[in-house]
């Protein structure tokens, strides 16, 4: 369980993050979303006890990130993927992982086994001894992810884990993360990839130097957008925009070709009524779908489109 209470970090006059308060239950995947400079990395660094909060605090289990003695305990139970991989470039992938595992007292046989498994999974076992300086950006990122996992930490902090990965590797990492979740790992992810956040996060927090909104991605979408359905019909009588107002709870958003976009308050009641009404008007329905809102829509609505600032 991670509890942030009024967590704030100021760099001089820059308020990187202000008054961030959320609870992250054990075993959840929690996404931090926000534009560049929103304070995601700063928040994560505070939780990893790398930066001291200016105000407020956070607890990981019962440990307080602002207490020096607790910080040491916390570092022992987290895995951290920083924004930049920061590997030892002259050393091989195996050595990079091996040295890190030793800081967490992972016994040698277990270390060997878990490094082999991780590198195998990431398709890098064959290149374990090459200096990682010669690796591609994505390969380095994979090793840095492996480094965060190598000691099986109960808490995992990943700053843009899939940022430089190809779709295949990104999926691999996502599956990995979901797999870790089933083992009870609590995972905090910073990401710009909204589809990814939607797919794997139990909760997301939208932040822009302060908490804007937090919740389950689906709930967020529904709480912000009314449900919309798209009904494609054979023809649209010109009077339809007026006549359709007789249906309570239904709003016509727009007409595009022969498709009507309608917002509904209560889909289970309103949808059958719309269908009945359309047939009664002699209009044939050829296609009907729910228009999906994505986390991206939520994001853009809450944080503004680029033009809107």
């Amino acid at each position: 369980m991670i509890t942030c209470t009024g967590l704030s970090k100021h760099f001089g006059s820059i308020h990187a993050i202000d008054d961030f308060t959320v609870d992250i239950p054990t075993g959840q995947i929690f996404g931090l979303l926000g534009p560049n400079g929103a304070g995601k990395t700063t928040t994560m660094r505070m939780l990893c006890c790398l930066l001291r909060p200016t105000k407020g605090t956070a607890h990981i289990d019962s440990y307080d990130i602002t207490k020096l003695a607790d910080a040491h305990k916390i570092r022992g139970m987290i895995g951290f993927l920083p924004e930049v991989p920061g590997l030892y470039e002259t050393l091989g992938a195996y050595q990079n992982l091996d040295y890190y595992a030793q800081f967490y007292n992972v016994p040698k046989p277990q270390r060997q086994e878990s490094i082999k498994k991780t590198l195998d999974d990431l398709d890098l076992w064959n290149r374990r001894s090459e200096p990682v300086g010669g690796f591609s950006k994505g390969m380095k990122q994979k090793i840095a992810i492996a480094r965060a996992l190598i000691h099986d930490p109960p808490y995992l902090f990943l700053d843009e884990p899939t940022a430089s990965l190809d779709p295949q590797a990104a999926k691999l990492v996502r599956d990995y993360i979901l797999d870790l979740k089933t083992q009870g790992t609590t995972i905090l992810i910073n990401t710009h990839n909204l589809t990814e956040a939607e797919r794997i996060c139990d909760q997301v927090a939208l932040i822009k130097n302060t908490l804007i909104k937090v919740g389950n991605p689906k709930h967020l979408e529904h709480s912000i957008f009314a449900r919309t359905i798209a009904v494609t019909v054979d023809h649209i009588p010109p009077t339809l925009p007026q006549t359709i107002t007789s249906l309570p709870g239904v709003t016509l958003n727009k007409i595009q070709d022969t498709t009507l976009y309608l917002s509904v308050k209560n889909p289970s009641d309103d949808n059958p009524r719309i269908i009945d009404w359309l047939s009664s008007q002699g209009i044939k329905i050829t296609f009907i779908t729910e228009e999906e809102h994505t986390l991206e829509d939520v994001y853009l609505k809450l944080l503004g489109t680029p033009q809107g600032g």
């Binding site: 990893c48 305990k73 920083p82 991989p85 920061g86 590997l87 030892y88 800081f103 480094r147």
Partner: peptide, 14 residues
């Protein structure tokens, strides 16, 4: 400079 200090400082090393 090679940014390896950040992950190192996040390990339980005093």
């Amino acid at each position: 400079n090679n940014r390896s200090l950040e992950p190192l400082l996040a390990t339980p090393i005093t």
